[in-house]
Amino acid sequence: MKIEQTTLTQKAIDLLKQLISIQSFSSEEDKTAEAIEQWFMNFDIPFERINNNVFAKNKYWDNAKPTLLLNSHHDTVKPNKAYTKDPFDPHIEDGKLYGLGSNDAGGALVSLMATFVHFYDAENLNHNILIVASAEEENAGKNSLRGLLSSLPKIDVAIVGEPTLMQLAIAEKGLVVFDAVVKGTPSHAAHPNDNNAIYNTIEVLEWFKNYGFKKTSETLGDVKMTVTQINAGSQHNVVPAQVELVVDVRVNDQYTNKEIADLLKSEAPCELQERGLNLNSSKIDKGHALVRSGIALGRTTYGSPTLSDQAALTCQSLKLGPGDSTRSHSADEYIYVREIEEGIHLYIKILEGFLTK
């Protein structure tokens, strides 16, 4: 099945337009899953589906070989209120393909799917190729890649498709979200109260703002801690008993998530409880053959501050894809058509350097 790259690229762009036109919020991806199934059927490629995850193996799968995973997701966040264009209307203006999920991560997904088709019936590859179009990435849901892994073959190395401008994100920060409680004495607002929970929160917020983690990372920099939500009070004349905060901590590869939780819970001037510890940082050795293949094509390496399905994987993984991460979750989201063309070309070239040597 030899398909010209230009033809394959156009089919990928057509698929992306179709995916944009279908609402696919996290856990509601059944219709985009059907569109992806149809893509594989159009190329006579056998596939499987579990929940809304669709996956396929290359034609000459060999259980004796290690496995390369190609993965990206087809769910989206909900469009924000600043949209001026219809988020479900895929259209091209000035070389930009607009639509919800175009950049995050539809462009990467269809580019990886085209790359998989390119290599599907190639013989004598040194790795098997497994492609997974996964669901529930945006909300880290139970039916995401994480929930699928037990049904997949062992994965030895992975490319996770996210917008990186086709540069090589060789590390990714992990995430721990904490719920914090600052307590005080509830009272009527008209009476004296020197233990006002809201006032007590000022000192706590300063502590979070100024706290510094000692270990820094060559690729991921410092751990970043940010208070992102605050909630207190029910009416104007009542001093509340407590203030509730949400704290977002982006963890570098010098700490485990448990180390971060233990450290903050022992030192923070308030009660803290983590929501989970399973979204750890990820990385791949800079000397890995997959990375070397990309560097040989002029790609640069960096550490990514944003989270992806890499957090579900225990193998070495590389984040790589067309599009720009700064456009993700923005109003009037778009990806350049040329970025998809370049993405498919570079994915194929990188894998040629990795799979055939």
Results as ranks from 00 to 15, higher is better:
Lys173Glu: 06
Lys173Gly: 03
Gly174His: 02
Gly174Tyr: 02
Leu175Tyr: 00
Leu175Lys: 01
Val176Ile: 11
Val176Glu: 05
Val176Met: 06
Val176Thr: 07
Val177Cys: 05
Val177Asp: 11
Phe178Arg: 04
Phe178Tyr: 08
Asp179Ser: 11
Asp179Arg: 13
Ala180His: 06
Val181Ser: 05
Val181Phe: 07
Val181Asn: 04
Val182Phe: 12
Val182Ser: 15
Lys183Pro: 09
Lys183Glu: 15
Gly184Glu: 13
Thr185Lys: 10
Thr185Ile: 15
Thr185Pro: 08
Ser187Thr: 02
His188Gln: 01
His188Phe: 06
His188Cys: 04
Ala189Arg: 01
Ala189Val: 12
Ala190Thr: 01
His191Val: 07
His191Gly: 02
His191Leu: 10
His191Ala: 07
Pro192Trp: 06
Pro192Gln: 07
Asn193Cys: 12
Asn193Ala: 09
Asn193Asp: 08
Asn193Phe: 10
Asp194Ile: 01
Asp194Gln: 01
Asp194Ala: 00
Asp194Arg: 00
Asn195Tyr: 08
Ala197Trp: 13
Ile198Gly: 03
Asn200Glu: 09
Thr201Ser: 13
Ile202Leu: 03
Glu203Met: 10
Glu203Ala: 14
Glu203Arg: 11
Val204Met: 06
Glu206Pro: 01
Trp207Ala: 06
Phe208Asn: 13
Phe208Pro: 14
Phe208Leu: 10
Phe208Ser: 09
Lys209Tyr: 02
Lys209Ile: 00
Lys209Phe: 02
Lys209Gln: 01
Asn210Cys: 05
Tyr211Gln: 12
Tyr211Arg: 14
Gly212Met: 01
Gly212Asn: 00
Gly212Glu: 02
Gly212Phe: 00
Phe213Arg: 09
Phe213Ser: 06
Lys214Cys: 00
Lys214Thr: 04
Lys215Asn: 05
Lys215Met: 01
Thr216Phe: 05
Ser217His: 08
Ser217Leu: 06
Ser217Thr: 06
Glu218Asn: 14
Glu218His: 15
Glu218Ala: 11
Thr219Phe: 07
Thr219Gly: 03
Thr219Asn: 10
Thr219Glu: 14
Leu220Ile: 01
Leu220Ala: 01
Gly221Met: 02
Asp222Cys: 08
Asp222Thr: 08
Asp222Ile: 05
Val223Pro: 07
Val223Met: 13
Val223Gly: 08
Val223Lys: 14
Lys224Trp: 02
Lys224Asp: 04
Met225Ser: 08
Met225Gln: 10
Met225Asn: 07
Met225Leu: 12
Met225Thr: 10
Met225Ile: 12
Thr226Val: 12
Thr226Lys: 11
Val227Pro: 11
Thr228His: 07
Thr228Leu: 03
Gln229Trp: 09
Gln229Ala: 13
Gln229Phe: 15
Ile230Gln: 02
Ile230Tyr: 00
Asn231Ala: 15
Ala232Ile: 11
Gly233Thr: 14
Gly233Leu: 12
Ser234Val: 13
Ser234Glu: 15
Ser234His: 11
Gln235Asn: 10
Gln235Asp: 07
Gln235Leu: 09
Gln235Pro: 04
His236Leu: 12
Asn237Ile: 11
Val238Asn: 02
Val238Phe: 08
Val238Pro: 00
Val238Lys: 03
